[in-house]
């Protein structure tokens, strides 16, 4: 079942620039030249119920802007958005009760009070029945293991604990759809993993559709079956993470370790040397040549260890961004 449909969505902002120096500041005080930034350009995609989708892109690519349009915080400049059959920018209460958004850097918890107070407030705001509330709360506190901090003032909690409680507050009304804007930002590795495990379990258990933006590749590799790549406001890839490997990655990386010192000249017959020093080397070879080249390498060089790998996703994505910019 389709839960989000976005068609030819665009959003532009006005902004202005200031040249270096006081004189230009004064000039700006009197006269500002407004410029238009197209934060999102002509994006289309669909998301089905129960999917776990990642929005990935460099800073300023338009991920958060897109999320804001999906949740009704921003009006699109053009194009159409339909979320669970609603137009988000109408901001109907009925619509708001069906989704939640967690913004990593903006808390909805009351700073001076224990988180349980904010969670209880959300029970009333979202009109959750007592029994359902109790059940959700027990499940969520159990999964995230936060019993011990429920009654501590939010401002005394660590970032990780706050994030977990933020998730509880957002999920207490069992939304069908959850937007996460950089949920693991600033968290330590262990907490990141816990949050990730939780999200994965929750998505599978409750069939909640989750759309996440993140800079951490690990978040995306572990969680998301689908990846939407955005750069400069445009959609550059939409599909399976593994398929991206296949479709985008025409080359493989061969990592070599030698038993004795190998000179650079000995390797120079191969194109695509990425890195070479005395006892090791890394080559990038077109897929179809991998077999032949590795056989030849084994025959010609004093090899201790050979490893054939896909190009890491991060690198692939960076090169996709660069290709996009070059266009």
């Amino acid at each position: 079942m389709e839960i989000i449909a976005v068609k030819e969505l665009s959003k532009s902002f006005e902004y202005y620039t200031k040249e270096l120096g006081v004189r230009n500041s004064i000039k700006n005080l009197l006269f500002r030249k407004t410029l238009i930034k197209e934060a999102v350009r002509d994006i289309s995609f669909r998301i089905d119920q129960g999917e776990f989708v990642a929005f990935l892109g460099p800073n300023g690519a338009g991920k958060t802007t897109t999320l804001k349009m999906l949740s009704g915080i921003l009006h699109p400049t053009s194009g159409s958005v339909s979320v669970m059959g609603y137009n988000p920018s109408e901001r109907k209460n009925e619509f708001k009760r069906k989704f939640a958004i967690v913004m990593g850097q903006k808390s909805q918890l009351w700073w001076d009070l224990p988180a349980i107070e904010s969670i209880l407030l959300n029970k009333y705001i979202y009109q959750v029945e007592d029994v359902a509330y109790r059940k959700s709360l027990d499940e969520l506190t159990e999964l995230l293991q936060v019993h011990h901090v429920m009654n501590v003032q939010v401002r005394r909690l660590s970032l990780g604990e706050r994030m977990k409680l933020e998730l509880i507050a957002s999920l207490i009304h069992k939304p069908q759809l959850l937007f996460l804007d950089e949920p693991t930002i600033g968290l330590d590795i262990e907490t990141q993993k816990k949050v990730r495990d939780f999200l994965k379990y929750y998505n599978e258990q409750h069939k909640t559709t989750i759309v996440l933006t993140s800079h951490y590749m690990k978040d995306i590799e572990d969680l998301c079956s689908r990846l939407i790549l955005i750069s400069d406001g445009q959609l550059i890839y939409d599909g399976n993470l593994k398929e991206m490997n296949g479709a985008m990655n025409q080359t493989k990386v061969i990592k070599l370790k030698f038993t004795e010192r190998v000179k650079l000249e000995q390797l120079q017959t191969y194109a695509g040397i990425r890195h070479a020093e005395d006892y090791q080397a890394t080559l990038e070879i077109p897929k179809e040549q991998v077999n032949a080249v590795s056989r030849e390498l084994l025959a010609r060089l004093p090899i201790e260890d050979i490893l054939i790998e896909d190009i890491p996703v991060e690198e692939m994505i960076v090169s996709m961004y660069q290709r996009k910019r070059a266009q």
Partner: peptide, 12 residues
């Protein structure tokens, strides 16, 4: 600071 967002997305 955009904190208004957290009220806009909730039914309040």
């Amino acid at each position: 600071d955009g904190h208004l967002n957290r009220y806009l997305v909730r039914p309040i």
